[in-house]
């Protein structure tokens, strides 16, 4: 564990929490892509199957359980409890355009042709593009509430910090995971345009439009 990894994890945790709190406090999930949330839940469900096979640390186990519960909780709030506020007319990104290529890629480019390993690879590739329905929704409606912008910033910052963590681990431990690094770079690049808007607009108190 190094500082980049820790802040990255905390940023991820913070992103999930502000999304849940936003939905809970405003009793509304307007502006949030349910499709991205389903993809994230699928990412956690396919990646954290190792909860049943390996124990790494209490920190690792608790974080995994939190991510799993919170992502399914978010889906419950969006599709059941506050269903009426879900903006489905603007959430129209075709997720099969992500799921099918990601499934094929994970079958071809993986560390080992083994069920758990392929599912892990699938989750890494899927996570890198899972935000696209949300970004598509923001671009379609042409705006995002500040709280949604903070959520996106924290979520994007997390993988960016993981890249610093991988650079640090490469020099200190010789650790290098090509699949995670490439997917992590793709994931961070997808947020770049948003980061620019966030810094130039949202932090100056303007709405993201």
């Amino acid at each position: 564990m190094n500082i980049f990894r820790l802040i990255g994890d905390l940023s991820h945790l913070f992103a999930i929490l502000i999304l849940l709190l936003k939905i809970w406090k405003t009793r509304s999930c307007a502006g949030i892509s349910g499709r991205s949330q389903i993809l994230f839940a699928l990412v956690f469900a396919t990646r954290y199957l190792d909860l049943f096979t390996h124990f790494i640390s209490l920190y690792n186990t608790l974080m995994k359980i939190f991510y799993l519960c919170s992502s399914f909780g978010t889906i419950y709030l969006m599709y059941v409890k506050f269903k009426a506020t879900y903006d489905r007319n603007h959430d129209t990104f075709r997720v099969e355009f992500l799921l099918i290529p990601v499934a094929i890629l994970s079958l071809i480019f993986n560390h080992e042709f083994d069920v758990l390993e392929i599912l892990w690879t699938f989750s890494i590739y899927l996570e890198s593009v899972a935000i696209l329905p949300q970004l598509f929704m923001v671009s379609k409606t042409g705006e995002a509430e500040s709280i949604t912008s903070h959520y996106l910033f924290a979520l994007g910052a997390y993988r960016g910090l993981y890249i610093l963590n991988w650079i640090y681990r490469y020099y200190t431990e010789g650790f290098f995971d090509l699949i995670a690094v490439i997917a992590g770079i793709v994931q961070t690049v997808l947020y770049c345009d948003f980061f620019y808007l966030y810094i130039t607009k949202v932090l100056k108190g303007k709405r993201l439009t």
Binding site: R5, H12, I56, S57, M63, K64, Y67, Y162, A180
Partner: peptide, 10 residues
């Protein structure tokens, strides 16, 4: 059997 790589990242 070679040692399995344990994935400690989230």
């Amino acid at each position: 059997d070679e040692a399995e790589e344990v994935k400690d990242e989230l």
